[in-house]
């Protein structure tokens, strides 16, 4: 574990350069430049707010637009970084065939690149908070930890996905579809509180209710999004009950994903 981190630390300059390349490349010939990073979550926020006007979603004490925007921050980061990372190995065929450095640098760099866009979106969130007159509490200090956790969750899918994608390009095609489905299974449009009320308080699914809730929270994004909203908007600590199942699954899957990637890595240049 320590060796893995140490090894990556040795390549920090390369990762920074590659991340800079990804960002510069993305916006170099775009007139709107880095503004594209905020257009997606802002548009989604507007659409969801519009939809809510028809269907009515209970958002608690927090105004719905800012609640949904706060959910979209970790969600967009997770979605885009995994989709990008899964294609990162295949997308760098020229480098893979010509030079060796640890291949996990590609998916890791993809995820790191998206952190920059996340940072820009944070500014928008701060603006929204000012607009709604909300002040952050001490609990905002949870945010860095939550980000680390989100990065690990993204890497869990990214590493295995990127490796499989070298052999079967289906993964790169399928993942965006799966991720857009996962969004509905995560508390993005609706707050986690609604699910909690339905399953834990009202026991809507009878004796299966508690089990269903655990299954729902196996998705790490469920815990992450809720905790993020708690820390930034509601001024409370993360809900350990909602976080635990997801954390356990990441803790188990991330090492497997990494080991699979390292095993597959030796054959990238031959197969790609």
């Amino acid at each position: 574990m320590l060796k893995v981190v140490k090894n990556l630390y040795d390549y920090r300059e390369l990762m920074l350069t590659l991340a800079w390349k990804n960002i510069a490349l993305r916006y170099k010939q775009a007139y709107l430049g880095i503004a594209w990073a905020i257009i997606k979550p802002v548009t989604l926020m507007l659409i969801f707010t519009l939809v809510r006007a028809f269907v009515g979603i209970e958002s608690g004490d927090v105004p719905y637009p800012i609640l949904v925007f706060a959910a979209l921050l970790p969600w967009t980061f997770f979605q885009e970084s995994t989709s990008d990372a899964v294609n990162s190995v295949v997308g760098n065929t020229a480098l893979i065939k010509k030079i060796y450095f640890p291949r996990e640098i590609f998916p890791i760099t993809s995820v790191m690149t998206k952190l920059v866009e996340l940072g820009i979106n944070f500014l928008i969130l701060a603006g929204l908070m000012v607009w709604y007159g909300m002040l952050p509490s001490i609990h905002i200090l949870w945010v860095p930890l939550l980000l680390v956790y989100t990065v690990l969750a993204a890497l869990t899918i990214a590493l295995a996905g990127a490796a499989v994608n070298v052999y079967y390009r289906d993964v790169g095609q399928a993942l965006p579809v799966l991720l857009s489905l996962l969004m509905y299974a995560s508390p993005v449009i609706y707050p986690l509180q609604l699910v909690k009320d339905k399953l834990l308080t009202q026991q809507a699914a009878g004796e299966w209710s508690n089990a269903l809730y655990t299954i729902y929270t196996l998705n790490p994004l469920a815990g992450i999004i809720d905790a993020f909203q708690n820390a930034v908007l509601r001024g409370t600590a993360p809900d350990p009950h909602a976080m635990l199942p997801g954390m356990v699954s990441i803790l188990l899957l991330l090492p497997l994903s990494y080991l699979y990637f390292k095993r597959a890595e030796s054959f990238f240049a031959d197969v790609i």
Partner: peptide, 8 residues
Amino acid sequence: GAGFVPDF
């Protein structure tokens, strides 16, 4: 030049 990025 394998790593050259044309836009750079």
